[in-house]
Design a protein around this nucleic acid. Structure first.
Lengths: 332, 332
DNA sequence: TTGGACTATGTTATCGGTAACATATAATCC
DNA sequence: GGATTATATGTTACCGATAACATAGTCCAA
């Protein structure tokens, strides 16, 4: 049988409560009592039952990370960096991470996460606030923070990158390099980072006095394969752009692949700028010029903010933007 | 207030037990009663409290994934693929994933995972069975499976790749390409995949009638940076190998980086073969020749076996090996 | 028609902790 | 010195579900 707090209490000749106090360092306990209990705990190799404790205290000391349920989601370097940031913050806090790959079209699944009492808070990644039922996650009393999906309503906390500025940096750099015809690979417009980067692209065109050509904008939905396929028609145009700004690195990779397959050279025929600065960006030949967003810090700060909200140190909603910067490499 | 099973029972005019039966589809309930309860559940948007359920039923429907607690752990493509396989199996099973980045030197932390009742089973990744306290994880009654770390004792389940065969494939191919001086970048020898690949290397040398040269074997500990640093002395040798087999892809990447920095060419001056077939392997120029191990399937099968053990369908320990194959690209 | 089997439901105890409140003794204060 | 406060500990109830056992009614076969 598993050792319980009652076993410890019996052996120590005290009540369960006193043992509980020693374990949680709450209330006051005589020093000898405390040391005796601690010794017995060690001897019997007692570990508190996390579930019982959660039920009773109404705190699971677990935070949930909600990501889209799709095949290659864990291979996404952006998510890896965010996770890394989250876990760095949590590792000193005795909080655990529970993963929720979620099917946004399944109302029951979504509500279950929000109401199952499995976690004390949620970090939501790569999911549009417009997705069916997804607002259910932020609806209730469960503390929630979104990453890279602004919410202009008043209720929901988020942490975001300065996506518009990032797009501007990329565009201004391309302009400065002499490019006047700049295409764009568009991410999901129902996620605000996709939307904002597109906005940044269009605003920059205006500010730089460049024309907006519908044919130079292709949809990639933050999906490498889709970008790979869709860029073909852009490359077939008679009047092609000389540079392409992509709303994320994966799509840039897909585009470059197609460009090279069709016999063009990067950066000679097409300069390419990505967004994110995923790990492979620097490994590739040519190495990818990209707008670096602080993926690790987005995760770390999201976790910290979420913990502060859970603990009542901070009042939700928190809204925060982190800076981005242009990393110039070989594709421009 | 949160809606509880008691609220549903009251509204439906039945006992909690009847509601519980409807939710869990256990026992028998009259069809009208059942439909009435289901309607009320929907109307009140009731979702069972996962924690209470776990405490009472002694099953959390959660499996834990134990990984080393280090900075770039989530960027490890091997882990990403394994996670992906695990989550694919779990997504249809109403099981959740809890992550345990664990400090193997912290006895308390390790025991807490094994005994905290947070999970129904554990998948252990990239952690040596010899690491301090790690045997505690497999000690108790908690179902456990290791990936890529054989355990020759009788107790512990594992799923492994045919590492020795993989090494042999790499070596024979290099031999066939004309290489007679083959160096080796060694992974952690306290993990059995590191050990086995080294064994495969040495056995192949013998079988192919090649000499074993201590200077041609460098330690990389499955760490790209370490391989990058340590290969320098091999490259400085007067009598250098013409090919290098690396115990994993990341170390191969580190090695190639250094090789190129020192002005040598891959594959002209040094052929390189890796192990794993991580995603970047095919993206790089030159693309990496490597032994592909079924990382995704390792995760998926581990999860399936673990579920079977948890459910009593299978008796532990299960011991299984998956096949590997050589993927020939441009570094050889 | 009587007992066994099955169906439908309820009752009670329990899972392993913590919250909230109560109590007793010791220490402090005016 | 009596009231007040702090320290140390215990009691009881409860968190929200399920397990195990109990019960009442129905149906059918012997």
């Amino acid at each position: 049988m598993k050792v319980t707090i009652a076993d410890i209490a019996r052996k120590a000749g005290v009540s369960k409560m006193t043992v509980s106090r020693v374990i949680n360092k709450t209330g006051s306990v005589a020093i000898e009592t405390k040391e005796n209990i601690e010794r017995i705990i060690r001897e019997m190799d007692y570990h508190p039952d996390h579930i019982a404790r959660s039920l009773s205290s109404k705190s699971t000391r677990t935070i949930g990370i909600v990501i889209p349920k799709k095949e290659k989601i864990f291979m996404d370097n952006y998510i890896a960096h965010v996770l890394s940031g989250v876990s760095e913050v949590l590792k000193n806090e005795d909080y655990r991470i529970m993963l929720f790959p979620v099917d946004v079209t399944n109302e029951f699944e979504v509500s279950g996460i929000a109401q199952g009492n499995m976690v004390d808070g949620l970090i939501i990644l790569k999911i549009s606030k417009n997705d069916n039922y997804m607002q259910k996650l932020s609806d209730g009393k469960l503390p929630t923070i979104r990453i890279n999906n602004r919410d202009d309503g008043e209720q929901v906390s988020f942490i975001d990158s300065e996506n518009i500025k990032g797009a501007r940096l990329a565009m201004e750099y391309l302009y400065q390099k002499g490019h006047r015809k700049i295409g764009f690979i568009c991410g999901r417009l129902d996620e605000t980072n996709g939307e904002d980067r597109f906005t940044g692209y269009r605003e920059s065109l205006t500010n730089l006095g460049l024309e907006y050509n519908e044919n130079w904008v292709i949809q990639g939905d933050f999906d490498k394969e889709l970008a790979y396929r869709n860029i073909e028609k852009l490359l077939a145009l008679k009047d092609k752009p000389t540079a392409i700004f992509s709303s994320d690195d994966y799509m840039a990779l897909g585009a470059i692949e197609k460009i090279q397959e069709m016999g063009y050279k990067v950066p000679d025929d097409f300069a390419v700028v990505g967004f994110d600065d995923i790990d492979v960006a620097s490994l590739l030949k040519p190495a990818l010029t990209t707008v670096q967003q602080p993926m690790h810090d987005l995760g770390a700060e999201a976790a910290q903010i979420l913990l502060d909200i859970i603990r009542g140190k901070t009042e939700a909603p928190v809204k925060k933007f982190l800076d981005v910067k242009l990393i110039i490499r070989e594709t421009t």
